Computed example of a mutant assay.
Amino acid sequence: MPQQVRGVIARAKGAPVELVDIVVPDPGPGEVVVSVAACGVCHTDLTYREGGINDEYPFLLGHEAAGTVESVGEGVETVQPGDYVVLNWRAVCGNCRACKRGRPQYCFDTFNAEQKMTLTDGTELSPALGIGAFADKTLVHAGQCTKVDPTADPAVVGLLGCGVMAGLGAAVNTGGVSRGDTVAVIGCGGVGDAAVMGARLAGASKIIAVDRDPRKLDWARDLGATHTVNASESDSVEEIRALTGGFGADVVIDAVGRPETWKEAFYARDLAGTVVLVGVPTPEMTLEVPLLDVFGRGGSLKSSWYGDCLPERDFPMLVDLHQQGRLPLEKFVTERIKLDEVEEAFHTMHAGEVLRSVVVL
């Protein structure tokens, strides 16, 4: 039988979010109903509310989540009721040209549940990133569920579902940071600090965090940065070069996603170094760089989408590292809030006062 539960929706552009009753259908073929235990408040949810993704209102917000599988639909074999899972927004198809080449992390045909959750009047909801986890329960595709250690704190490991994985993967997967590398990270919010953590995990010898907010630089230092640069007080490119013997960093990660920060990353890297763009630009942004500089400096210019992760490979490994005390993911949880406090959490996040607010259900 379909279930009626609570959910947080964005009904119109810029309007405050609402806690309302929603209807979750029984899972169909390939689908799963998950009882949500916790869900992080990500900037992407605010972007949905502001119309920055599309205009398919109303949105059911929330996507950085962990919970327990309640029921499964026909043909589901990868999970079963009672499994503890972290949700992801890239259920790989297994059939596209990337998957067939053994590169499922680049799948070109990811998918979500086919059925729609609705308001009680039948209005269909658009779940954020195909998840919609600011709710007591949500409907997703089975491929969006990754089983992890059931003793892990859902408020902590659920953050792997988006921002933390995006930043950590930008360093480890996309940037290929290895032991002894020098790394610079521009922008030290949640994604940037996760990149700092990833660089530390990979064994970087020097990790330089760049931001304009002293509080964010303190967060970065706590998560593994060996040096910090306040970009409001000095030229970040010159500072990074000075800290790397005049050469520039082996890997520079732009976690802001603006033309000016990308250029800083480009010129702050060593010859044949790597630039990784993980911050998300807006559609109107353009970039102009002398082509001779691109040719003359060599190296790699990459973008990182979801940290080039493969959830079934990366989530269990990272949760295990966390459980062993080797990956302090708990430091990203600034506060734990209730489901009816999401709107307030948006204001707190926008003010830069938290790494993550996490809704605990």
Rank of each mutant, 00 (worst) to 15 (best):
T228W: 04
A231D: 10
I131S: 09
G52V: 00
L223C: 03
F346V: 11
N95K: 14
T118V: 08
D193L: 11
V140R: 00
G52N: 04
S205P: 02
M349P: 08
Q80S: 13
R179G: 15
P328L: 07
V17K: 11
H227M: 04
V229E: 09
L329F: 07
T182V: 02
H227Y: 05
R6C: 01
N230V: 09
V86G: 01
G190P: 03
G279I: 02
D211I: 07
G94Q: 05
E341I: 06
A170R: 14
G7Q: 08
P328I: 03
G257R: 01
E31C: 03
R326T: 12
E264F: 01
G246Q: 02
D181C: 15
P81M: 08
V185S: 09
R269G: 09
V210N: 00
G122M: 02
V140M: 00
P29Y: 10
G82S: 05
Y306W: 14
K263P: 15
L361F: 04
L287S: 01
V17A: 07
G257H: 02
N173L: 04
D45P: 00
Q105R: 15
G307W: 02
D270S: 07
V276Q: 12
P311L: 10
L87I: 04
L46W: 11
Q323D: 03
A242G: 09
A268G: 11
Q144K: 14
A38L: 06
Q3F: 15
A231M: 14
D153E: 02
G51F: 13
T174R: 03
T44W: 01
E233H: 15
A255E: 06
R179Q: 13
E70C: 07
R103Q: 10
Q4V: 14
R313T: 09
D314K: 14
E239R: 10
G102S: 06
R101F: 10
L87R: 00
V17S: 15
K100V: 14
G62T: 09
L291G: 10
K206V: 08
L310I: 01
G51W: 10
D218W: 12
G62V: 06
T226L: 04
F315V: 05
A91F: 06
L291K: 11
